[in-house]
Amino acid sequence: MAVTGPDANPEAQTRDLPASKERLRMWLRMLKSTRRVEAALRERLRRDFATTLPRFDVMAALARYEDGLKMSALSGVLRVSNGNVTGIVDRLAEEGLVVRVQVPGDRRASLVRLTRKGQEVFAQQARAHEAWIGELLEDFTPEEARMFSDRFDAVTHKDEEDPA
């Protein structure tokens, strides 16, 4: 007995979707994949380093700015509120991984930067993180990874080019 109706040929149904539906479908799959990778990273950071993804993100941001960042700039880089970052920075400071340095001429402002210990701890975590990403996304060739990166960058910067 031949299958007829909506389940007859799922591939044909997908192929015939309007562009907006295909893009929606792509977005949902991309979101699902992103959440899966993020969950794996969270678990591995917890298991292997007894740390969290937000702490890793703060240290990664600080690693890119050797002279340190003001709290507001750090929040901006991470695209989160100052309140979210403050607690993380407090705990990292208690562990000797970051230090707050007074900004000359501004009594209210301080820079946050990684200590030598923080740099060493982050370097270990960053190496593991890169290996995990390599493993989780190993089905993509370097060329595909570059193409997707370029396409996602275009989406990210679209609002900057076309403020509608």
Rank of each mutant, 00 (worst) to 15 (best):
K70H: 06
S72H: 10
D57H: 10
L111S: 06
L97N: 01
A60T: 05
R47N: 13
E138K: 13
R107N: 11
R44C: 07
G5R: 09
D57N: 14
A63N: 10
T141H: 05
R36T: 08
Q102R: 15
E120R: 11
N84L: 03
E22Q: 15
V89K: 01
E143P: 06
L74D: 09
S75R: 01
L78E: 06
T52E: 07
E160Q: 10
K21A: 15
K32I: 05
R146N: 08
F56C: 01
S33Y: 09
V101N: 02
R113P: 05
H157S: 12
E66D: 14
E135I: 13
S33H: 09
A109Y: 02
V58F: 04
T156F: 12
E138P: 03
E120I: 11
S110G: 07
L137S: 07
L62R: 04
E22A: 13
L31R: 11
A61E: 05
M71G: 13
V99G: 03
V112T: 15
A93P: 03
G87Q: 00
A40V: 12
A128I: 03
L28V: 11
D48W: 04
T156M: 12
V103M: 05
P18H: 08
E120H: 06
R47M: 11
Q13D: 09
T115K: 04
D153L: 15
E66G: 01
W132G: 07
G68N: 04
A39D: 08
W27R: 11
L78A: 01
E22R: 15
L111M: 10
G118M: 06
P54S: 09
V37Q: 09
Q13S: 12
E144P: 07
E95L: 09
P142Q: 05
F49Y: 14
N84G: 10
I133A: 08
Y65P: 02
M26H: 11
A63S: 14
T14R: 12
T34S: 14
T52V: 06
M1I: 14
R79C: 02
D16E: 13
V103R: 08
E43A: 15
D150L: 15
S72E: 15
A109L: 07
R36E: 12
A8G: 00
L53E: 08
R55T: 02
D48G: 03
D57T: 02
V98I: 06
G118F: 00
R107D: 12
L24M: 14
R42L: 01
T86Y: 03
W27V: 11
L45V: 00
A154D: 07
E95H: 06
D67A: 15
G5A: 05
H157V: 10
T115Q: 06
T156E: 10
W132S: 06
T86S: 09
E144T: 13
F140T: 02
A131P: 03
Q102W: 02
V155T: 07
E66R: 15
R36H: 08
D67H: 13
F148T: 11
L28F: 12
L28G: 04
A109T: 05
P163V: 01
M147Q: 13
R116M: 05
S110P: 03
I88F: 03
E38K: 12
M71V: 10
D16F: 11
R25L: 15
S20I: 14
P54M: 10
E120P: 00
A73P: 00
E95P: 04
P104M: 02
L74H: 04
